[in-house]
């Protein structure tokens, strides 16, 4: 069931960020759907959350003390230069965890050899699938490594990068249609047979 801002949520689990309270009642603040008693918001702009694993692009350096990373969120993140085990430069794509705060990125890996794409963060769960089932199919059938950030940035490297990207965009567009896993599996199988 579609929910619009201002719709009341009764007996529904919902992340607080996307709701508000008025006169003791809970209302949705964003577009989303309610399924099986849970409200899933249609989040387009990622809100950095402590503990999230994210993928980002280094866009600036601040006086050799830190690097600024674009996460496609409403604010950027930083990587502290001190104690950094890898060398990074502006333009690099990195993967890390927002461990110390929702702004500081640590456990940095530099990603190379592929392409960076951005999808709607609320579709990331679909790209990963239950127990990683969806992303596993993509990786196997296209022989790629797929690095998924909860912020909606995904880095793909390997053999058939463009096919993997096409599959990911398809998941984003069809996230709410049933039978998506089979659809993607068939789509990738069909493309494989074309080679």
């Amino acid at each position: 069931m579609i929910v619009l801002p201002g719709d009341e949520l009764v007996n529904v689990r919902a992340p607080r960020q996307y709701t508000y309270l008025k006169d003791g009642k809970t209302y949705a603040a964003v577009l989303g759907i309610v399924e099986n008693g849970t409200f899933t918001p249609y989040e387009f702009v990622y809100t950095p959350k402590l503990g999230d694993v994210v993928v980002g692009r280094v866009i600036a350096e601040k006086k050799r003390v830190a690097y600024i990373v674009d996460l496609g969120a409403y604010k950027t993140a930083v990587i502290m230069t001190r104690g950094l085990p890898v060398k990074i430069k502006i333009g690099d794509v990195v993967m890390g965890k927002l461990e110390q705060s929702d702004e500081i990125l640590s456990n940095i890996r530099v990603l190379r050899g592929g392409a960076l794409i951005k999808i709607n963060p609320s579709k990331i769960a679909r790209v990963i699938g239950t127990n990683g089932s969806m992303v596993k199919i993509i990786k196997e059938k296209t022989e790629t490594s797929v690095y998924v950030g909860y912020n909606g940035y995904i880095y793909v490297a390997g053999k058939n990068v463009s096919k993997a990207i096409k599959a990911i965009y398809t998941i984003e567009r069809r996230a709410h249609i049933r039978g998506l896993t089979d659809f993607i599996s068939d789509m990738l199988e069909g493309e494989k047979n074309e080679e």
Binding site: G91, G113, A115, L116, I117, V161, S162, I165
Partner: peptide, 22 residues
């Protein structure tokens, strides 16, 4: 899609195609 120059070139040299398969 954000691509680094090396990746575009690698893909073109290997496959003869662009990242969007053109």
């Amino acid at each position: 899609m954000i691509l680094q120059k090396e990746e575009i070139l690698k893909h073109l040299r290997k496959e003869g195609l662009r990242f969007d398969e053109r």
